[in-house]
Design a protein around this nucleic acid. Structure first.
Lengths: 162, 162
DNA sequence: GCCTAACTGTTAGGCTACCTAACTATGAGT
DNA sequence: ACTCATAGTTAGGTAGCCTAACAGTTAGGC
C-alpha cells in the first residue's frame, strides 16, 4: 500500500461519491426500461445498428453492411453468447436480421429491419420523454452542471470499454 | 400531447444524453461489481445497514435498532421478496442478522454483524480504489465538472425514488 | 497442397437477481 | 370480536449473464 498510486484522498472521495450516484442511478435506468417492449440490452443493440446504418437497400449496402456479433458484444460489454441471445430475440421480433458476411464466411452481419428502425425510434422517444419528465424539476444551474458532466462521464466510459 | 410539459427540445436532448451516459455506465458498474465477493444489491444493503448503525451493543440499540425489510426494499428499488432473498444470503454469509422488532411483531429488524462491518469496509475500499484508478486519467477540470454534477444526479435519484 | 492454429458464432447448461401470487402472522379500527 | 390493512416469507417463473464445448472458416508453416 506504500507505493499505491490511487490513494489521493480527494480522488477516492470523488470515486466514492460517483459510485454512490451510479448505484442509485441503476434504479432510475430500471424504471426507464420497465417500459416493457425492449430490454436495455436490446435497445442498445438496436441503437448501435441504427448508428451503423439501416437495412435499407437504398444504401446499396456499401459501407453500412451491418455489425458483427463480436462487435455488438464488445459494445454491450457482454460475452459473445449473450449478444447472440439478444440478437436472436430481436430477429424473432422482426427487428433485426442476420446475414452472412460476404468477406468472411465465419462472420455474421446484423442489420436493422424497417420495423427495427421504427421500434428504436419509438422506444427512444418514450424513454426520453420519461427522463425529461424527471429532469424537468431541476433548476437551470443544475441542468447546466449535469450537461457539463456528461461528456466527462462519456470519457470515463470510453476508458473502461477500451 | 398538446399540453405536454416535457417537449422542451433542450430538455429532451439532455435527457437523451443522460440516458446514453447512464446506459454505458452500467458496464462500468458491472466491472466494479465483478470483484466477486458481494453483489451490487448486497453491498448496497450492507451500506444501508452501516449508515443506520452497526450491531455493536455499545450503542445500546437505542436509535439504531436496524432497518426493516420493507425499507431496504424501497431503498434498493426492488420488491420486498427480492430484498428478503438478499438479506437471507447476507445472513447465511454471517454479515447480517435478522431480529424481531420489539415494537411491531410483524416487522423484522436487519442489522450488520461485526463481520458485516468489516466486509462492507473492505469491499468499499476495493471498489473505490478501482474507480479512483479509472478517474485518475481525468483532468482537474473534468473532475470538477463531475463533482459538480454528482449532487444533481443525487437529487434526480431521490426524485425517482420518492 | 495440406495441416495445424487462430478466430467467429452457436448451442448447452447453469447461476443470480428480479418479478407476481399466495400465504402466515400481527396490528388497528369499528 | 371481526374485519381490513400491513410486514414478511415462500413458491414458482422469467430474463440476462456466464463458461464450456462445438462447428465452420481463415491463415500460416512446411
Amino acid at each position: 500500500m506504500s507505493v499505491s498510486e490511487t490513494t489521493d484522498p480527494g480522488l477516492l472521495a470523488l470515486a466514492q461519491d460517483f459510485r454512490e450516484a451510479l448505484r442509485h442511478s441503476i434504479y432510475l435506468v430500471r424504471r426507464l426500461d420497465a417500459d416493457g417492449e425492449l430490454s436495455a440490452a436490446q435497445l442498445s443493440t438496436l441503437k448501435m445498428l441504427m448508428d451503423a446504418g439501416t437495412s435499407r437497400e437504398g444504401d446499396g449496402g456499401s459501407s453500412a453492411a451491418g455489425v458483427r456479433v463480436g462487435e455488438i458484444a464488445r459494445n454491450l460489454g457482454v460475452r459473445v453468447p449473450s449478444a447472440t441471445e439478444q440478437i436472436i430475440k430481436l430477429e424473432r421480433a422482426g427487428l433485426a436480421r442476420r446475414e452472412p458476411d460476404p468477406e468472411d464466411s465465419r462472420a455474421v452481419r446484423v442489420r436493422l429491419t424497417e420495423a427495427g428502425v421504427a421500434a428504436v425510434a419509438s422506444a427512444n422517444e418514450r424513454r426520453n420523454a420519461v427522463m425529461a419528465g424527471v429532469l424537468s424539476s431541476l433548476s437551470d444551474d443544475e441542468r447546466a452542471a449535469l450537461a457539463a458532466a456528461l461528456p466527462v462521464i462519456g470519457r470515463i466510459n470510453a476508458t473502461v470499454q477500451a
